[in-house]
Every structure is written in C-alpha cells, then in structure tokens.
Design a protein around this nucleic acid. Sequence first.
DNA 1: TCTTAATGTGTAACCGGTTACATATCAATA
DNA 2: TATTGATATGTAACCGGTTACACATTAAGA
Lengths: 325, 325
Amino acid sequence: MATIKQVAKHANVSVATVSRVMNKSGYVSEEAKEAVEKAISELNYAPNRVARSLYKKSSNLIGLIMPDITNPFFPQLARAIEDVANQHGYQVVLCNTDEQLEKEQTYLVALQTMHVDGLIITTNHSHNPNYETLNLPMVALDRIVKAGIDAVISDGYEGGKLAANTLIQRGAMRLAHIAGPDHLKTVQRRTEGFVEVAGDRLVGMTESAFAFKDALKASQELFDHAWPFDGIFAANDVIAAAVLQEAVRRNIRVPEELQVIGYDGIELGEMTSPPLTTIVQPIYEMGRVATERLLDLIEKKDTRPKEMLLPVALLERQTTKRKER
Amino acid sequence: MATIKQVAKHANVSVATVSRVMNKSGYVSEEAKEAVEKAISELNYAPNRVARSLYKKSSNLIGLIMPDITNPFFPQLARAIEDVANQHGYQVVLCNTDEQLEKEQTYLVALQTMHVDGLIITTNHSHNPNYETLNLPMVALDRIVKAGIDAVISDGYEGGKLAANTLIQRGAMRLAHIAGPDHLKTVQRRTEGFVEVAGDRLVGMTESAFAFKDALKASQELFDHAWPFDGIFAANDVIAAAVLQEAVRRNIRVPEELQVIGYDGIELGEMTSPPLTTIVQPIYEMGRVATERLLDLIEKKDTRPKEMLLPVALLERQTTKRKER
DNA sequence: TCTTAATGTGTAACCGGTTACATATCAATA
DNA sequence: TATTGATATGTAACCGGTTACACATTAAGA
C-alpha cells in the first residue's frame, strides 16, 4: 500500500498538500490539486485509517453490543445498523455478549482502546454501571439503559393494547398471555398494555425466556393449566411460534378455536403454519433511527438526551379470524 | 485515558520499560516491573490499540463478509466466529454485502485501510477478482472462492445422498427436490448427491433462491407440476419450511403422505409444524474451524492452502416416518 | 507606492505506542 | 586483571497520517 509520502514525492509536493487535497481543507492551487489527484490514482493510494485515527482520536468504527445474534430479531436490527453506518462511512464491530456480564465488560474496554466513536446497545444488563462512566456517545436500542442515555424503542404498551383489542374484536372471550423476561422494561410494557385491555377476560398468563425451547415449555404449562382460552398474545414471535406448534400438536385448530398474536414482525412469522398474525415493530426503522441518532451524537449535532418511541402496527396473517364487518 | 508516558512518569521509568513489562519482552528488573504494574493499576491504564496498530501494522481485527445476516444460517456462523475470535483477543467487523458486488468492493478497501489482519468470506461473488490481489490471510466459509484460498465447507454431497437414502429407507418411492441457486458450488453438491442416489425415483425438481418468498413460489410450482411425490429434499431449511407450509395449505399430511428433509440444521427447523427432519451441518464447528484456521494463517503457523470438509448428520424430527426395523 | 489580506506551500511537531541502539552494571570466565 | 555475556534501562526513530506555524507570493485597497 502506498503512503502519503510516496504520493507527495510522485506529485512533487509536500505531504501537507496531499493531505489538504484529500481533506479539501486549506488552500491548494488547481495545479497542485491535479498533480496530487493524478498521483493518487496512479499509485492507487488509500489513506491509512489507523494513522488518521491516532491523530484524530476517532476511528469511524461503532460498537454494536448484542445479547445474542442468533435470536432472529437481532440480525434484522444489525442489518439496518450496518446499512446506515456504512452509508456514512462507518464500520460496525459486532459484540455478542451471550448475556454474560463479563464478556460485555471485556468488550467495553476493547472498544475503548480501539477508539470506537460510539456504541449501540441492545444488551440486557441495563444495570451495568460501566456505561455511565464510559463517556462515549451511545444509544440504547430496544432497551432502556438509564435516564440520560438515548433510547430508541417501539411502543410496546400500545402494541399490547392493540393485540388485546384485536383478539376481542375478532370474538375472543377468554384470553391468555405469555410474557417475556421480567427484567426487560420494553417487553414488560407489552404485557401491561395487554393486561389492561384484557381485564377480566384474562384467564391465564405465564412467562418465558425468548429461546424457543423455553417458550415451548411455557406454552405446554399454559395449555395444561389454563385451557380453554380462545385468544393468546405472546411477548414475541418466537414464543408465538412455540404456542402455534403446541396447539398443532394438541389438535387445536388455529384460528378457529384459538387465535394467536405475536410481537416483532420477524420473518419467522411467515414461515409458520399457518402464518402468524403479529404486532410489527418497525425493526429496520428502529435500527436506522438509532444509528442516525448515534451519528448525530458523534458529530455533536445535538446532545440533549431523548427517548424515541416508534409506532407499531397490526400485521394480519392467518392466526386470527377475518375481521367482522 | 492514561497514556504510556503518564504511566512511565508515575512509575519513574521510561516508556520503553513500561512497554517491556506490558509485552513481557526484553529484560526488566523485578523492582521496575512492580512499580510499573502498580502505576498501571492506579491509573487504570489500557494501551491504545490504534497506536499499537500503526507501528505493528496489525489491528487484531478480522473482517467478516456475509451476503445477508438476515438469513438465519449466517447469524449462527457469525456467532461461532465472534466467539472464537474473541477468545483469541480479536474483534470482528461485520460486513453485510447484501449480495451487491459494489458494497463488497467498498468494504474490501475499507478493511484494508483499517489494516484488518484477515478475512472470513461467506459471500457469493466467488468470481470477485479482488480477493486474489488482496494479499491478506483469508478463509472462505461455506463457499469455495477459488483454488489457493482455504475453504471450510460441509459435505454436501454426502448430505444429499444421506437425504435420498433416508427417504427411500422410509418408504418413499417418488422423490422430488428443490435445489439452491446454481452459482453456489457448495449447494449444488447437495443436489448432485441427492440426484445420484434418487435415480429413477426422481419425479420432480426445481430451483429456488434462499429467501422464503422465492421458496414458497418454487414449492407451489413443484406441487402444481410434479405432484404426487412422497418424499422431498430441499437444499436448505428455509426452503423446506416453505414446502411444509405449502403442504399444510394443500392439506397434504406430513409425514404420512409426504416426507420432507431440509439441510442446515438451523433453529428454524424446530419451530415449524411438524418440526423438520434435516441434514445438519455442524454450523458452530464450521465457524470455529474457519476462525482457528484464519488465526493460524495470520500467525503464519501454516500456509499451505487446505480445503476442510466437515461431516453432516441426519437429525430426525417429525417430517419423516419412523425407521422401520 | 505602501499596507494589508488572501492565497499557496513546506517543515516539523504531534498522536501513543514499539523497538533498535547505545550505554551501564555486574558476575563469571580466562 | 582483562574480557565477555547476561541483565537492565533510557533515548530516539519510527509507523502514516493531520495541522500549527512560518514563510512567500500576489492582489486589493488606501
């Protein structure tokens, strides 16, 4: 790889001039500019980002901290983040914490020593004290880390209400619910909204982690103890898929006997039989907003902390009945 | 963040000595070592990796080039890679190319200018000429880029044969197949193995991209034109999920009337109804082997190009009949 | 014509590490 | 006692950019 010195020599100017034309800063004569550009293209020169980082104390790298990229919700988020970051000349460093606080800590120091410009956090350890002392631009995504740190979330409370209202409107009388892990505020809001609207109609409720196996176990328990119910809302699509599978296994017809609504809007929902009705979060949009916000923070465009609440919508597939008119 | 100079001053030694104790290189007296260690912990010092990179021309970063992180096979791979890389002190830069050659090129220069130490490639543009001139350690994963570049793949040929033999053994007489995109050699091998064993029994075959929507369309065509068949092998689990969904929609009973086998062994397979029988690739293992191989290459432990072929296995869930005995 | 500001360019310091090299001490060996 | 190798440590060059500063030239305004 060519260096700036070689380019300078080749164009018969100093390194300062080369740097000026590359960064379009300071004064450069038309003549010098052309010579430099010619040299750059002839030598196939691309500036060494490491050297630039060292002086500028900025790397054009952002850290993406995720609990588990294997959970199908996160890749869609990652995809959006990577997309937007890339459009702005940033790369993303993938940090899978596996829910282990220790891995998260290790990553935090690694990211700092490599001078990442900012962080997007979708992790579960919202109590991690390190974030406060980090002094790095960061935004929490689908999570609320703490006041003072920006957050981008979808409106789970409205989503929960929407799920309940939809089931009721389609004739469900006896409702059930499987909530998500109780340390995730954003997920609990879904439950709050649902429970509030369901009121007396709620006949059964349990809780589950987001892994499919756990969800299957939770579903079985619910069917064992709270059956019959004719409408169920699951805190996310993976849990809903487990409910569906268990319903099929028990020969319960969906949606005739039991209507099912999930939450997330991930692709998995199209792949189940029958395809899943769900409350969609605008996943790509969330990733986009979070990333753009982070870039603003990095470029110091706006520093007042904000919480951004994005709207959700009902996506009707085939686990709910047709709307009566 | 403290710098090495501050640590040196605090410990009353030179920066060289500090560097020596940090890298356990050269001679350092016990006394100096203790003083430096004390200073490091008191100042909470962590060396600036950017500065180190500049001198060493190595960043402890590896680039991971993927076509689409949203496709559920890749996150599992990413997870393994991230895991192993992290254990060895490397971080991974996620590069989603979206199948666009241009994005891939852009990433390639970005990765070079940031001095990544190596590349893992799971991308589809195996003809991309840039890889050859890149002069960076790299390994292709689930892909064959070209001779001379290491590859880690699973034994698709055996997998295809295994799928056919399994279906035949379980009584299937009329076989069908949905192949994957024909520019992916690793995927074509599955088809070759299957077709070879199926022989005359093969009554229908089509091709599909890996996106669910495409797969659904392909399934429909196959059912429209080649039905009846009583055993089908799909080139991956996503396609198999589409086949299943379409079978359910047409009231075809699985596995009684139609047995289905997928390929990959991703989690999606447990979530369908009924759960999918599939040929599992050792996904985590493939990611692990590829990453370890890359790290060996980086550390110049072994530079003879190799192709590593990992074995596959049958995972029986419920879309095939019980084995007769 | 003289002053002043705008334009153009190069030199060298700087970012924060690593390491070649010079230098010094000391114990072992000839 | 002189020589030698192992041990210990500091100075400064180096990695490849960016930019403060000095200096030169030219055009505009008084």
